[in-house]
Write a protein that binds this DNA or RNA. Structure first.
Lengths: 350, 350
DNA sequence: TTACATTTGGTAACCGGTGTCATATTGCCT
DNA sequence: AGGCAATATGACACCGGTTACCAAATGTAA
């Protein structure tokens, strides 16, 4: 008894008619408005009336129509997740985090993967927001670094929350991780382990996350009182292959490094790959630390020590900022990442 | 000029008023109905009237309110993606595929990660569908194998499309990959390479995908005229650790296998890990093939040869089935997977 | 010229909720 | 008992689209 056989003008099956607020009102012998009050937990309601209406609601399985509500309230309950993210793990973690927050609300999460390099990027997103009349949007890195995009979303009337890796200029809705400090701590930890020659693989220029991690590396080396050797610095693209290339170069210097901090796991995996190719012992001869804690990090050999964003917690916080006006007014939330210690980094073997 | 400063009763900022169909009608000097006809591309319309209205629409940037439309049409344009999936790569691929299909439609994609083991699973999902009044839902494996869930969604008036790894009983909306044949082909390929002792790591019992892949293994061995040695068969949980365990057992037999087909990449990675631990040369002494082509597969060492679902194509097909009643009426779509040949499998070294 | 079909546009009601404001009921005080 | 506030409920218009139905304008044939 799922649908009746009548089709509408579009060829779609007509849906079973669901009970409406009118049905509830009629059955309970009250007005629509009273039912509406029950639904919205209005305080000025006779207890007897309330329970009578609630009984009817439960009996016929009434669920308010969100589209009608959205229309009447002139505000809807869709939040958009816009991302262009190479790290599937992270995107999914964010989706789960957001969902944990909105699970018992009337909000829903609408996703929109985009192509950062598309020339119609802005138009696409504008169309998306206007067409769906989004309540708010959440921007994930790296596209969260696009100020023009964030401005546009705001002009469109959306609440905007950005997840980032650093203090993005404006004192706006932001959920960030303090990459700089996390990297500094990790590098300092390497120095405590006894490493003196520590190399660094930077991410691509123009990414705020890449810049923050570079600064963190400098901080950590400074704190450890270690000099930065330009021969031990490489720049990659955040991709596996560029880690390979970094390995070629950094492992070929006269006095090679005993440890490497890579700005992300993919490059770390590439570097590791190359180190093993060259017959080096990891971590004996070369320690490696990555960033992101992707699935790969745990499954390569040896398992990669890496820095991990508290993604779900950040996503929960971001979702709160989005749907809770009080929270939104508060300061940016800055999270600190954890160092996941696995086997790819240890004290250098004498 | 994003919002005015007036807040509504809920403390949210009131949004800028967007132009409505009435504004368009007034400015164009026609009735609402005429504007509606233009929007819906009604054929019985004076060309001059149409262009006049279109000019106004373009000028003031009118976009129809989807909530109002949904209300009036008694049908909405939200499709839900319900999944409980360990493979982030795949979920994201599906999201992208669906989006490619619905990009220029008025549909939007609402995601709902769930916990397959939650006791309130059905209630949660029922609530989700009823609350959002979803038009249709797409179920991803492994939860797509839950018939009870699919039935419930249908009863709720949703179009249901399931992505699966095998012919799911009913002749319903289904987009599947032919895992059985893909595995058979891969195993046969191993035999062509010269392997005679081929082992198999099965997935957990109760998963259709696991069963299909087992059948595929048997098919491939039969086609190659090779016997199946029970000592070379293991069963895992689809997780890395169980691949490790399989390695412990399968590599300890008197005449160890020269090749292994693992029902997924994670277990393959675990098995590979263990093989390297034991000092085996891969692929020289032992070849390994996985399934899924996760990010890990490409980044472990040696890179894993693996079977890959044409995920985006499947997702596109599934989305079409969901939104296009004609397509929906057609047969299930069965896709064949590709074998991604990397370095973990090759001819056995004499 | 009239009768009639065909286009084209307008009016009103409705979808399922909401807000505003008026009204009915109750309790309390003098 | 009468007056008044506080509480509880209802009537009604409205959100922004849709369809159903009707009226006017136009074209066309007898």
């Amino acid at each position: 008894m799922r649908t009746n056989a009548i089709t509408d003008g579009h060829g779609y099956m007509a849906r079973d008619a669901k009970p409406t607020i009118n049905d509830v009102a009629r059955l309970a012998g009250v007005s629509k408005k009273t039912v509406s009050r029950v639904i919205n937990k209005s305080p000025l309601l006779n207890e007897a009336t309330r329970s009578k209406v609630e009984a009817v609601i439960a009996e016929i399985g009434y669920v308010p129509n969100p589209q009608a509500r959205a229309l009447a309230l002139r505000r809807n309950f869709l939040i958009g997740l816009i991302h262009d993210n190479p790290n599937a793990q992270m995107v999914l973690g964010v989706q789960e985090g957001i969902l944990e927050t909105i699970r018992n609300t009337e909000f829903a999460l609408v996703v929109r993967p985009v192509d950062r390099h598309s020339p119609q990027l802005l138009d696409d997103i504008r169309h998306f927001i206007e067409q769906q009349r989004l309540f708010g949007v959440m921007l994930l890195p790296p596209i969260s670094e696009n100020d023009e995009l964030a401005d546009m979303c705001r002009k469109l009337g959306c609440t905007v929350v950005r997840m980032g890796s650093a203090a993005l200029d404006k004192s706006e809705h932001l959920v960030a991780s303090n990459d700089r400090q996390a990297v500094a701590d990790a590098v300092f930890w390497l120095s405590e382990l006894g490493h003196r020659r520590i190399g660094f693989i930077a991410g691509p220029q123009g990414f705020r996350s890449a810049r923050e991690r570079e600064l963190g590396f400098a901080d950590g080396m400074a704190r450890a009182g270690l000099p930065i050797d330009p021969a031990l610095m490489a720049r990659g693209t955040y991709r596996f292959e560029s880690g390979l290339a970094a390995g070629d170069r950094l492992l070929a210097v006269d006095t090679p490094p005993t440890a490497i901090f890579s700005s992300n796991d993919e490059m770390a995996a590439g570097f590791l790959h190359r180190a093993l190719d060259k017959g080096l012992k990891v971590p004996g001869q070369i320690s490696i630390i990555g960033f992101d804690n992707t699935a790969t990090a745990a499954h390569i050999w040896p398992p990669l020590t890496t820095v991990q964003w508290p993604i779900k917690a950040m996503a929960r916080a971001a979702a709160h900022k989005l749907i809770d006006p009080l929270d939104a007014a508060s300061q940016p939330s800055i999270f600190l990442s954890d160092l996941i210690r696995r086997s790819s980094a240890d004290a250098p073997s004498a």
